[in-house]
Amino acid sequence: MTDRGAAPPGAQAGDGAILRIDHVTKRFGGLVAVDDVTFDVKKGEIFALIGPNGAGKTTLFNGITGIFPPTAGRIVFQGREITGAKPHQVAAFGIARTFQNIRLFEYMSSLDNVRLGQHCRMHAKLWDSLFKTPAEHREEQRVTDRAMELLQFVGIEQYTHIYARNLPYGSQRRLEIARALATNPALLLLDEPAAGFTPQEKVELMGLVHKIVDQGVTVFLIEHDMKVVMGVSRRIVVLDHGEKIAEGTPEQVRRDQRVIEAYLGTQH
């Protein structure tokens, strides 16, 4: 991760908020999955979204990335409204994501998965691809180098030429992060990156998240495991039944009465 290249177009410091969720609501038929939620993610931080099962966390991610656009409200990224933009446009603006139930391209090698991630940062046109022009050749080389770099960065370079489906579980999660980083994002959304991890793996993952932030990428993660969240993020928003019930530092959230109720009430 030496050279991150040019910042995505339209990057600006603004008031420090890289992502603004502004009164976002998502309904599926009669069900309100996300109910009038508002918060900011600040540039350069590790921000966490927590909440019990079915609180609407993934739905919110799907709303941000354009998979299921919100029913109401606005999503502003780097000072520009991206509500309702298509998923591939969102990726091009500089938001990358991983999925709760790992969605790798299982029959592509790890290398190809990461190279695919750079799709929207490549310039080869049909003509270049057809005739393997020198420009295309150079670009492929560059993309391959960058992919190798990313595989190394997340620590799975030994699986470069292995099909994604044949990787061990933990490495698949890492590969997904590498693939997301390949899109050269300013904001990385991680959907339960530590799900199914052993305590040891969780510690390693926290290290990786810190490394990513050190590269200048803002990290916004959903996590179930309170320990991971408390250890890694400075600011937390808690969702329950689609509503925001708390926001603040880990300490503040931990002491919040509604949060305790939400967790004790549903989980234990």
Partner: peptide, 26 residues
């Protein structure tokens, strides 16, 4: 040539998982 290019990769990705491909900027 096409198969081994940016496009070829994108086709494979779309064939395997359209949602993931779109989220990666395809």
């Amino acid at each position: 040539n096409l198969r081994r290019s940016r496009m070829g990769r994108a086709w494979m990705a779309v064939r395997e998982d359209e949602v993931a491909a779109a989220a990666m900027g395809v």
